[in-house]
Simulated assay, not measured.
Amino acid sequence: MNALNYRLLLVHSKLDAEVRREHKRRFPNALRLLRLKKLRLAIKDRMYRLAFVHQTGAA
């Protein structure tokens, strides 16, 4: 695993923890949850693209 993949994995984990923390609040902020989930999905998509490029050798 290279440095970029590792950093993306760390950011994804932190965002996941923030989503869980927000859900546990008495009154979760829907806009904050939406923003966190969109960021988490963007990171996941980037990790997938990097893995796909690495696996296939496509540019």
Score class of each variant (00 low, 15 high):
residue 26 R to W: 13
residue 49 R to Y: 11
residue 38 K to Y: 07
residue 58 A to Q: 13
residue 36 L to I: 07
residue 21 R to N: 11
residue 8 L to M: 07
residue 57 G to E: 05
residue 7 R to S: 06
residue 43 I to W: 00
residue 4 L to S: 01
residue 49 R to F: 11
residue 39 L to R: 09
residue 29 N to F: 03
residue 16 D to Q: 11
residue 54 H to S: 14
residue 27 F to N: 14
residue 55 Q to E: 13
residue 4 L to T: 02
residue 15 L to P: 00
residue 3 A to N: 10
residue 57 G to K: 02
residue 19 V to R: 01
residue 25 R to E: 07
residue 35 R to H: 12
residue 13 S to I: 10
residue 26 R to G: 11
residue 39 L to D: 05
residue 19 V to D: 00
residue 21 R to S: 12
residue 53 V to F: 07
residue 32 R to P: 00
residue 17 A to N: 12
residue 11 V to Y: 02
residue 28 P to W: 08
residue 15 L to T: 01
residue 33 L to R: 03
residue 43 I to C: 05
residue 12 H to T: 02
residue 4 L to F: 01
residue 35 R to Q: 14
residue 38 K to G: 06
residue 4 L to R: 07
residue 3 A to F: 09
residue 25 R to G: 01
residue 26 R to L: 15
residue 10 L to E: 10
residue 29 N to K: 09
residue 14 K to A: 10
residue 44 K to W: 07
residue 1 M to C: 04
residue 47 M to L: 15
residue 28 P to N: 08
residue 16 D to P: 01
residue 7 R to Q: 11
residue 19 V to K: 01
residue 2 N to G: 13
residue 47 M to T: 09
residue 7 R to K: 12
residue 59 A to W: 12
residue 25 R to P: 00
residue 37 K to T: 14
residue 51 A to N: 09
residue 7 R to W: 08
residue 11 V to E: 09
residue 8 L to P: 00
residue 27 F to S: 13
residue 40 R to S: 03
residue 28 P to V: 08
residue 56 T to Y: 04
residue 13 S to Y: 11
residue 35 R to V: 12
residue 11 V to H: 02
residue 38 K to T: 10
residue 47 M to Y: 06
residue 28 P to G: 08
residue 39 L to H: 04
residue 16 D to S: 12
residue 50 L to I: 09
residue 31 L to E: 15
residue 14 K to L: 10
residue 12 H to K: 13
residue 44 K to G: 04
residue 40 R to C: 01
residue 33 L to S: 03
residue 41 L to F: 05
residue 32 R to F: 05
residue 10 L to G: 03
residue 38 K to H: 10
residue 38 K to W: 08
residue 44 K to P: 00
residue 21 R to Y: 08
residue 26 R to C: 08
residue 18 E to H: 06
residue 9 L to V: 03
residue 10 L to M: 09
residue 7 R to V: 06
residue 8 L to Q: 03
residue 45 D to M: 10
residue 49 R to C: 08
residue 55 Q to N: 08
residue 58 A to T: 09
residue 50 L to P: 00
residue 34 L to C: 13
residue 13 S to H: 13
residue 53 V to P: 00
residue 32 R to C: 05
residue 27 F to E: 14
residue 41 L to V: 04
residue 57 G to I: 03
residue 12 H to M: 05
residue 11 V to N: 03
residue 46 R to E: 13
residue 41 L to Q: 10
residue 12 H to S: 06
residue 59 A to D: 14
residue 58 A to P: 04
residue 51 A to P: 01
residue 40 R to E: 04
residue 6 Y to H: 12
residue 49 R to P: 01
residue 30 A to Y: 09
residue 54 H to R: 14
residue 59 A to V: 13
residue 46 R to W: 04
residue 1 M to G: 10
residue 1 M to Q: 06
residue 56 T to M: 04
residue 29 N to A: 06
residue 40 R to A: 05
residue 51 A to M: 07
residue 34 L to T: 15
residue 33 L to G: 00
residue 52 F to D: 13
residue 31 L to V: 14
residue 4 L to Q: 04
residue 28 P to R: 09
residue 20 R to E: 13
residue 27 F to D: 12
residue 42 A to G: 07
residue 30 A to Q: 15
residue 35 R to A: 14
residue 13 S to D: 13
residue 29 N to D: 15
residue 11 V to P: 00
residue 10 L to H: 07
residue 3 A to G: 03
residue 31 L to S: 15
